[in-house]
């Protein structure tokens, strides 16, 4: 059965559970027993292990952080939103967009922003899908940084990322998001550090009026 390796990968991927990513380290006695059984070579290894030169002979093997991947949970939810939206987009492509709002977003009053930047975010709805269109080509970022578009609540306690902004583009607002609950449109400078939360360095901000 499933002799084609690609088919096997496909079938197995569907069945992977979070348990399959969980690991338990063996008790220390296991290595001692291995070293005792294979004799000379491994005893030399054990000595190496104590002064941290184990990886010195072999090139260092970076042990992957045991932050186990969670696509079966969180990422899948994000992706399913995208899939659902794509289906809607396909079905309603011919629809003309309805303008929901045009919001001025500026650097005014933001301590981390260069002064005098102003642009406008356009929010439109097409076939039930809302999108924000934005041009940020006036904002400079460093080589290890990028801009990210957010919707934020009035308390600045909760936010939704709409994605990375390069020069400009159109960003879908997830169907679950009530714009009245997240009226602030925010563009932040994010370091390229893999940390998914807002950096706190906003460079553009505007508020959708009710």
């Amino acid at each position: 059965m499933m002799n084609d390796p690609d088919d096997r990968v496909r079938h197995l991927l569907r069945d992977v559970t979070p348990d399959d990513a969980r690991r338990t380290a063996p008790p220390p006695a296991v290595w001692d027993a291995i070293a005792a059984e294979v004799g000379h070579d491994a005893r030399a290894d054990t000595a190496d292990a104590t002064d941290e030169t184990v990886a010195g002979v072999v090139a260092p093997i970076p042990l992957r952080a045991r932050h186990r991947w969670s696509w079966t949970l969180g990422a899948a939810a994000v992706l399913l939103v995208a899939i659902g939206a794509a289906v809607i987009i396909d079905a309603r492509r011919a629809d003309a967009p309805d303008l929901i709002a045009a919001v001025d977003v500026t650097s005014e009053g933001l301590p981390d922003a260069p002064a005098g930047i102003a642009t406008r975010a356009i929010i439109e709805e097409t076939g039930g899908v809302r999108r924000v269109a934005l041009d940020v080509s006036g904002v400079d970022v460093g080589a290890d940084e990028f801009l990210e578009l957010w919707l934020i609540n009035d308390d600045i306690t909760d936010m939704v990322s709409l994605g990375v902004v390069r020069n400009g583009g159109t960003f879908e607002i997830p169907a679950e998001v009530e714009l009245a609950d997240f009226p602030i449109i925010d563009v932040s400078v994010e370091p390229d550090d893999g940390v998914p939360t807002h950096s706190g360095r906003s460079v553009l901000r505007g508020r959708l009026e009710a």
Binding site: V30, V38, A44, D45, V54, I61
Partner: peptide, 16 residues
């Protein structure tokens, strides 16, 4: 030298 220990460090938890 050392590769068995390195292999054990990398894969021991998986096998166990």
């Amino acid at each position: 030298d050392s590769v068995l220990r390195a292999a054990y460090d990398e894969h021991g938890s998986f096998v166990y």
